[in-house]
């Protein structure tokens, strides 16, 4: 369960997140959509205690992030937009490290679980290499395995599918669906509208830090009359490409070639 209560984040004079309130219930995948720089990552980083909200707060499984962030972090798994991992550890070492911190009991059961996750995400072959040798997608998968190993009840995934191969993306989709049916609370952001449409139970669209539309696909369709696809709804709300400017650019570019 994630409840955000009037979250505000201000960087100097710039308001990145403005009075955001939404709820994600157990057994639900909530998709956070919005243009670049609209405040998705900032919101997630506040939920994880990486940034202190300027105003407002949030509760994770009932733990207030302002007063009890350690307890909140204990139930959360997070895959950041750009995972920064300990470069001088191997994936195997890193995941065990994470498991130690979350007090997952050591033993063959834990090893087997790590092994299974690594195999599922095609990482087994690289898991004895230092993380610094990994490709982008491999780092993200490593980060995902680390987030899953302690069986979090709340998952926060910032563009987890970006840069993942099709097989990996399909695997992630199945895993997330499975976790949802077991009652996990999942908040994810993505720019791929098909993913949002297929996977998310509810969608929140934010723009310039403010929630401009929220609901299930059905509810969004009802609100945006005459627009049926998520892309149409999204562009309708946040603005489509500037065709005039594009035409001008192409003209200029054409002149120079």
């Amino acid at each position: 369960m994630i409840e955000t209560l009037g979250l505000v984040k201000q960087f100097n004079d710039f308001v990145a997140v403005n009075n955001l309130s939404f709820t994600v219930s157990p057994g639900e995948i909530y998709g956070l959509l919005g243009p670049n720089g609209s405040g998705k990552s900032t919101t997630m980083r506040m939920l994880l205690g990486l940034l202190r909200p300027t105003e407002g707060t949030a509760r994770i499984m009932g733990h207030d992030i302002r007063t009890n962030i350690v307890a909140a972090k204990r139930v959360m798994g997070y895959v950041p937009e750009e995972p920064v991992l300990p470069e001088r550890l191997t994936a195997w070492e890193y995941i065990n490290y994470v498991a130690d911190i979350w007090r997952v009991p050591r033993g063959s059961e834990r090893e087997q679980e790590i092994e299974e996750l690594l195999v599922l995400l095609d990482l087994r072959d690289a898991s004895d290499d230092l993380i610094e040798t990994y490709s982008k997608g491999m780092s993200r998968k490593t980060s995902l395995v680390a987030a899953l190993i302690h069986k979090p009840r709340v998952l926060i995934l910032d563009e987890v599918q970006a840069g993942i191969d099709p097989r990996g993306a399909a695997t992630i989709k199945e895993i997330l669906n499975g976790l949802r049916s077991r009652g996990a609370t999942i908040l994810m952001s993505t720019h791929v509208l098909e993913i949002a449409e297929q996977m998310c139970d509810r969608i929140g669209i934010i723009n310039k830090g403010e929630m401009i539309a929220e609901g299930t696909m059905e509810e969004l369709r009802v609100k945006a009359v005459g627009q049926s696809s998520l892309e149409e709804i999204f562009l309708g709300l946040t603005g489509g490409p500037d065709m005039q400017l594009i035409a001008k650019f192409l003209e200029d570019a054409g002149a120079s070639t």
Partner: peptide
């Protein structure tokens, strides 16, 4: 530079 330790800061450690 705490960004570089993000993976540590999301752990349930004070």
């Amino acid at each position: 530079n705490s960004e570089r330790m993000e993976y540590l800061m999301t752990m349930p450690i004070s």
